[in-house]
């Protein structure tokens, strides 16, 4: 079972995404902010990161950058999502999904990362 870490501050979206991914047999761990996420990543790593960009205590892009620069996590796919349709630099992220997203499309694009 593939393990996915989600960082999303909005509770509604966090629950929605968690629900959607669980139905697809992914093991999901969701974090409401950067701080709790970073603490966990130091102990264990998942098979995919799904990161919101705008976070109350940080930025998904910075998180992505750190992950891609770290030896332990640089090989793990990162998918970013944001309500900002245009994001200039993706900091090495593997994909970007604009909010609001199509449910099927979200699942499709995450599935692609494991293909």
């Amino acid at each position: 079972m593939k393990k996915i870490f989600i960082v999303e501050d909005d509770e509604g979206i966090r629950e929605l995404v968690e629900f959607l991914l669980t139905t697809q047999d992914y093991s999901v761990q969701a974090f409401p902010n950067a701080r709790t996420f970073q603490k966990t990543v130091k102990e264990q790593v998942p098979d995919l990161f799904l990161l919101d960009i705008m976070l109350p205590d940080g930025n998904g892009l910075d998180l992505c950058k750190d992950l891609k620069e770290s030896e332990e996590t640089s090989h793990i796919p990162v998918v970013l999502m944001s309500a900002h349709a245009n994001v200039d630099r993706l900091e090495g992220a593997n994909d970007f999904i604009a909010k609001p997203f199509d449910v099927d499309e979200l699942l499709l694009r995450i599935g692609k990362q494991f293909a």
């Binding site: 909005d10 509604g12 929605l16 995404v17 909010k99 609001p100 997203f101 199509d102 449910v103």
Partner: peptide, 8 residues
């Protein structure tokens, strides 16, 4: 943000 949840 709420639109995303509603749509989903």
């Amino acid at each position: 943000t709420p639109l995303t949840t509603i749509k989903g």
